Simulated assay, not measured.
Amino acid sequence: MRRALNGGPRLYRMVGCIGLCLNILAIVYITFNMIYNVNPFHRSGQGCVRLETLDPNEVDMNKSIFFLETNRMPAVEIIPRQACSIESAARANPDRQVYVLVLSPRLECTHNMTAVFRLIAHYKNVKIRHVDFYGYVSDTPAEAFVKSGTMDKGRWPVEQHSDLLRLLTLWKFGGVYMDIDVVSLRPVPMENFVIAEKPGPMLGSGVIGLQNKSIAARAIEMFIRGFVGDEWTQNGPFLITSLTRAVCETDQLPDVNAGNANCGDLTIYQADVFSPIPWYEWPKLFHETDDYAVMKALNNSVGVHFWNKMTKDQPILVGSMQPYAQIAAMYCPIVYGTADEYL
């Protein structure tokens, strides 16, 4: 023992490696703190990652993909399933910027943050930014409506703020809005489009593409005029359906059962493009016995809507044959790789 302590070359090499590793860790820690303003000793609930505020000049007009997190709390958590959607969009669209716009100024640090940090490090096109709600609506068609306080009386403030902010975001920047429970399988089209949903007749509001600012302005006007605080679908799917009828100048929407439809500058995609498994069949996404049918249904899909409102408490076992687990393994491999037993 004394001889080894007094000078074995293997010991010196080992001590040198340990010292080098500690130095690298120190550099990473300092750099991380400088970039993300991290205070690991913050009390839970105050958040430990202060987000950079969105600079409108950094956004590529009509070329970006947007997710929203509209909980107006001191700090919010991006859970692995949300991170999976973000990664899948960045992975499928490497030539597009993927923005996650967060109303909270901070992210809460939990064990789930590992997935977020890894995807930010790997995908340079992922930008998580804070937006101040009142600042964001300033100088927009919705400013007076928001200041009136009408929305503050809504029954579902998180969802209803999201309904408005997705329209304002597309009015400001153009591009594609996606719900944060939609996993991308293929590149998302950059055009004016809405999506059908089964069983119909209403269209969906979970994925919207708009590059025509006049259509977005029309949607905002209809939102303000028709806002209903105690209705779940009125300000989302019903609005998008009404908007499409107005743009198409018809009370009867085109039939999309046989294929996608167009009216003027707007495309209406079949339900299978983004919702191959309709909301009323959501259990199929978690049953191993349904894996073949579900995976086959994805052949012509750009994305998969996972219906978080119904499925948020359903377990996803890592390594299982559950369709959700298989999709995550293929389309958000970094996030999936950070999960322990459940995603």
Rank of each mutant, 00 (worst) to 15 (best):
Arg50Trp: 09
Leu51Ser: 02
Arg118Thr: 11
Pro254Thr: 09
Ala115Arg: 01
Ala115Trp: 05
Ala92Pro: 07
Ala258Lys: 10
Asp313Cys: 01
Gly209Met: 05
Asp272Ser: 15
Leu168Cys: 03
Arg225Gly: 13
Gly149Ser: 11
Cys48Ala: 12
Tyr292Ser: 15
Thr267Gly: 04
Gln46Tyr: 10
Asn212Ser: 12
Glu191Pro: 06
Leu239Gln: 03
Phe274Met: 08
Ala325Gln: 01
Val256Tyr: 09
Asp163Gln: 02
Gln270Leu: 05
Gly226Ala: 04
Glu231Cys: 10
Asp230Asn: 13
Gly8Leu: 13
Leu25Lys: 06
Trp279Asp: 10
Ile30Arg: 06
Glu52Ala: 12
Val158Asn: 11
Arg225Asn: 14
Asn260Glu: 13
Ile208Asp: 02
Leu20Gly: 10
Asp179Asn: 05
Gln82Tyr: 12
Arg3Lys: 13
Gln46Asn: 12
Tyr292Cys: 05
Glu87Met: 05
Ala219His: 01
Ile180Met: 09
Thr267Cys: 10
Gly175Val: 07
Ile128Asn: 00
Tyr36Arg: 02
Gly236Trp: 06
Leu239Ile: 08
Gln160His: 15
Leu243Val: 05
Ser64Trp: 04
Val318Trp: 03
Ser205Gln: 03
Met178Pro: 00
Met73Ser: 13
Val247Glu: 09
Ala90Lys: 02
Gly149His: 01
Gln82Phe: 14
Ala258Ile: 08
Leu298Asp: 01
Asp60Tyr: 12
Glu288Tyr: 07
Ile180Thr: 09
Asp181Tyr: 03
